[in-house]
Amino acid sequence: MTASDETASEVDRAGEPLALSATRSNSTDPRSHPMTRSRWRKQLRPALLSVPLLSIVTGLIFPIALAVPARLFFPGQSRGSLIVRDGEVVGSRLIGQSSKRPGDFHPRPSAAGGGYDALASGGTNLGPANPKLRDGASDDPATPTVDESFAGVRQLASEFRLENGLPTTFPVPIDAVTRSGSGLDPHISVANATLQIARVARERKLSQERVRRLVQEYTFGPQLGFLGSARVSVLELNLALDDLALAVSSPSPASP
């Protein structure tokens, strides 16, 4: 049987008028004859043809048809919202970065690789009742190549207090002691940023008021006043602080 024969028989069958709301007769269905080889072929042919057809439509035409307007209308966003300084990519507005410099605002702790490793994004996946999450874990000396040490909530909280000169019972903001789901969270809460202002101002020899204004400038949300909560973009804020330092050290210093 050739392909055209099959098509012809298909048309014959399909040629019957479609009576969608007609009442059914009680006679046995004439199409329930036993399976034959030609029927198998009739099933396989559209199945095999539809795979390349649909993969071209949805897997090739669709992404390309999308990439073109995305590139034209949203050139920055479509390429990852990258931040470029002096021709060099320093990061992305959306991807957090580790920073331990005392003069910087510090992001949340991260479970992505050694911290904010965008190749190893992920969370801790520890259950709330897991003692490791609360108390941490120390490095296993039996495996010198792998570092099993893990800072728990207790340790992260006391480190945060020490770093920012807070009294020992001061309650630390929750986002400063928990790791995000992606490990790349670019934001911290406003409460978290506020507690870091004194340290940053001291290290950078700026007035607290100046730093506070900059923090406000990089505080986003809640969108339209009701969506999400207020948050501070850490990398952008640190870059702005660096720019400020450059402006201050340049020959014509800006007014403080």
Binding site: L126, T178, S180
Partner: peptide, 13 residues
């Protein structure tokens, strides 16, 4: 001594 707030482990700000 941590703000007894929502569970932020594994969540984005």
């Amino acid at each position: 001594a941590v703000v007894q707030g929502p569970n932020m482990e594994g969540k984005e700000v």
